[in-house]
């Protein structure tokens, strides 16, 4: 049952990425290109996506997930080097190619050799992150 709903959610996510045009790297790089031919489409996508999700977060209050378990607790308010440094690395890669993890998977069937190379490199990057994360976590935290 959990797998079925995950399949449905993944399918809807993929279809949404396809319809929104977010698997087209030109549109993503166009959004990031403030000093060139700026493309505002991504703002409509993000705005459209936040709306149902904001309602969903409201619905979680005082309830439990339909398939059991508990809802993820709100993360503690901690802005650490991992969050900022990791997001900066991600942003550089996102700008270079115009792909982030969701669209990279969603476009696998029509992304050609480049799409496969990106996905393979992304998987390697995810494996490299394991020791990096451990090292960052061991760093002394500012009081």
């Amino acid at each position: 049952m959990r797998a079925l709903f995950a399949l449905l959610s993944g399918g809807l996510f993929g279809a949404g990425l396809f319809v929104s045009g977010m698997t087209d790297t030109r549109k993503v790089q166009g959004w990031l290109d403030l000093f060139g031919d700026w493309d505002p489409t991504l703002a409509f996508v993000l705005g459209g996506a936040i709306l149902p999700m904001a309602i969903a977060w409201r619905l979680t209050e005082g309830r439990r997930p339909a398939l059991g378990g508990v809802f993820p607790p709100k993360p503690e308010l901690r802005i650490d080097p991992s969050l900022v440094g990791g997001s900066a690395l991600f942003g550089i890669g996102w700008g270079l190619a115009g792909l982030c993890p969701g669209p990279a998977m969603a476009s696998l069937s029509y992304g050609g050799v480049g799409g496969v190379v990106f996905l393979a490199a992304m998987v390697v990057g995810m494996l490299l992150a394991v020791p990096l994360r451990a090292r960052l976590a061991a760093m002394p935290r500012p009081a």
């Binding site: 809807l12 949404g16 409509f44 996508v45 459209g48 996506a49 999700m53 997930p65």
Partner: peptide, 19 residues
């Protein structure tokens, strides 16, 4: 973009509320 965005948000809502 907005239509696809709504679908992405609905997918996230489903994954949260069901799973």
């Amino acid at each position: 973009g907005a239509l696809g965005g709504l679908m992405i948000g609905a997918a996230a809502a489903l994954y949260l509320l069901a799973n």
